[in-house]
Design a protein around this nucleic acid. Structure first.
Lengths: 192, 192
DNA sequence: ACCTGAACACCGTTCAAGT
DNA sequence: ACCTGAACACCGTTCAAGT
């Protein structure tokens, strides 16, 4: 799932890899089906080099997406310190929505490149799952949501975020969806 | 959005079109990225003929998907006659889930072919929206769900269905998601 | 009016040759 | 151990010629 860290990369290889990821982020955000060949060219590496690092489109997109999503995941812990559990949960979802809109091109690339699972689901057990787990547990202990909701449930429930058109009034549509999800989570909570 | 019905197609063109759709359904269900050229060949038409009917992949996938989804949409009206509104709504969602799993390959093709919107969203105002509108209105009038929920809200809320892996215990995961959505819809309903 | 299939363009993938 | 870039394979799209 990750690059095996057994043999540390040679310094030039390391730089090439980073340059590719850097260019890929920009290009894929701009257009979801940017040619891999153009990414290789703009990164200043040969075709063969590109394929040494990323044997297929999915592996590249996954790596870029993982890195971007991690930034949002990391904020969960911070939010829990400054707000009540349910405020933190909702705020985190809002940030996730905002992020999903900003990186719509990338998310699109993600949907097209991965096989069966869209957006967050393709990342597997990673920082996203950990962040969600943290938020859910805090709320469960505070009695603000029903017990027994898994990170998987949550990710499925907010999947609609990635179907919202980033143009137009995405804020309204996202808000309505997240309100509905929050109500669903609250149903059957001890604190009621 | 639809084929202009002004000039009725010549009989051979009509047959070709139907043969293409027939083969496309089978091929796309089997593999989401089946080559269009192979579909044309198996349908027994030339490349040019294929592109006369469907100028790009999206238009083909959309047409096939639309036709398949319509079958589920049509059952909504029937369900409302034999059950209470909320039973009908839930049963309809279950059928939709079952259908989404059976046609997972097609849904995958849909995600990859359409630009920004996945699965149902790409269909625009059609039979799906009508069916959802019918079910929501019946429930709203019965006081079993909160007022003001739009078909768009609903479609976004169940978007997670198309992220579920058809293998494994999809029934459990779908059930948990739909339970959560139902609870969300019920929150703030007059009958409580 | 519609069909055919060869020709073209594009992009992902491989591989022999280099450092 | 890693890089390069030409060569190859595949697939979508077009178009001149046919009925």
């Amino acid at each position: 799932m990750q690059q095996r860290n057994d043999p540390p990369l040679r310094s030039d290889a390391q730089r090439n890899r980073e340059r590719i990821l850097e260019v890929a982020l920009a290009e894929l955000t701009r257009s979801a089906d940017a040619p891999l060949s153009s990414i290789a060219k703009k990164a200043g590496v040969g075709q063969g080099t590109f394929y040494r690092h990323f044997p297929n489109r999915e592996s590249l997109v996954l790596e870029v997406y993982r890195h971007e999503v991690q930034q949002v995941s990391d904020t969960a812990c911070q939010l829990l310190k400054t707000r009540t559990p349910d405020e933190a949960l909702r705020e985190w979802m809002d940030r996730l929505a905002q992020y999903a809109m900003a990186k719509a091109g990338l998310a699109d690339a993600m949907r097209k490149a991965t096989s069966a699972h869209g957006s967050l689901a393709g990342l597997g057990h990673g920082p996203v799952t950990s962040a969600v787990e943290l938020l859910l547990k805090a709320n469960e202990e505070a009695g603000t949501i029903r017990p027994g909701v898994t990170p998987d449930d949550f990710v499925l429930a907010i999947a609609g975020l990635w179907q919202i058109d980033p143009h137009g009034d995405w804020h309204t549509r996202a808000g309505r969806l997240l309100d509905l999800v929050m109500d669903g989570l609250r149903a059957g909570a001890p604190g009621a």
